Computed example of a mutant assay.
Amino acid sequence: MAEDKSTCGKGFHDSSVHVDVKEYYGNKLKQTSDLKTNACVTPAKPIPAFIRQALKKVHPEVTARYYGCGLVVPEGLEECIILDLGSGSGRDCYMLSQLVGEKGHVTGIDMTEDQLKVARTYVDYHMQEFGYKKPNVSFVQGYIEALTEAGLKKNSFDIIISNCVVNLSPDKRQVLAEAYSILKDGGEFYFSDIYSSDRLTEEIKNHKVLWGECLGGALWWKDLLRLAEEVGFSPPRLVTASVITVDNKDLEDILGNFKFVSATYRLFKVPKGNTKPCQVIYNGGITGVEESFQFDHQYTFKVDGVVDVDGEVASILTHSRFAGDFTIQPSGGPGGSCGVKPTAKVEDPFELVLQLEKKGPGSTTGGCCSTKSATCCK
Rank of each mutant, 00 (worst) to 15 (best):
C93R: 02
C93P: 06
H105I: 14
Y94T: 04
E61Y: 02
V72G: 06
V62M: 11
H59A: 05
P60Q: 08
V62A: 07
S87Q: 10
G70T: 01
A54W: 09
R91W: 06
L71P: 00
G86R: 03
L85C: 14
E78L: 09
M95N: 01
Y94E: 05
L83C: 10
G86W: 08
L85D: 02
G86D: 02
R91A: 15
D84F: 09
K103Y: 13
K57I: 02
P60A: 06
R52A: 02
F50M: 13
S89C: 03
K56Y: 09
Y67L: 14
Y66H: 09
V58I: 08
Y67P: 05
L83E: 07
R52S: 07
C93N: 14
R65D: 02
S97L: 11
P48T: 11
G104K: 14
V106D: 06
C69H: 10
S97C: 12
G86A: 03
A49N: 10
P48R: 06
V106P: 10
A64G: 05
L55H: 09
R52D: 02
V100C: 15
D92F: 06
G101D: 08
Q98S: 13
T107H: 15
V62C: 09
I82C: 01
G86Q: 04
I81H: 13
L96I: 14
I51A: 00
G70K: 05
L85W: 02
D92L: 07
K57W: 00
A54D: 04
P46M: 01
F50I: 06
L77V: 02
C69A: 15
V73P: 00
Q53R: 11
K57S: 07
D92T: 14
G76K: 07
L83D: 00
Y94I: 03
Y94A: 06
A49H: 11
L55A: 02
C80M: 15
Q53I: 05
V100T: 15
A49F: 09
M95C: 14
R65N: 14
C69K: 11
T63F: 12
S89R: 11
I47C: 07
L77S: 13
G101R: 10
D92C: 10
V58G: 10
Y94C: 10
G86K: 09
D92S: 11
G76R: 04
I47P: 00
T107N: 13
R65P: 09
C93H: 13
H105G: 03
Q98A: 12
P48C: 03
Q98L: 14
K45I: 00
K103H: 14
S89M: 09
Y94W: 15
K45N: 11
I81N: 04
G70S: 12
K57V: 03
E79V: 00
R65Q: 02
A54Y: 01
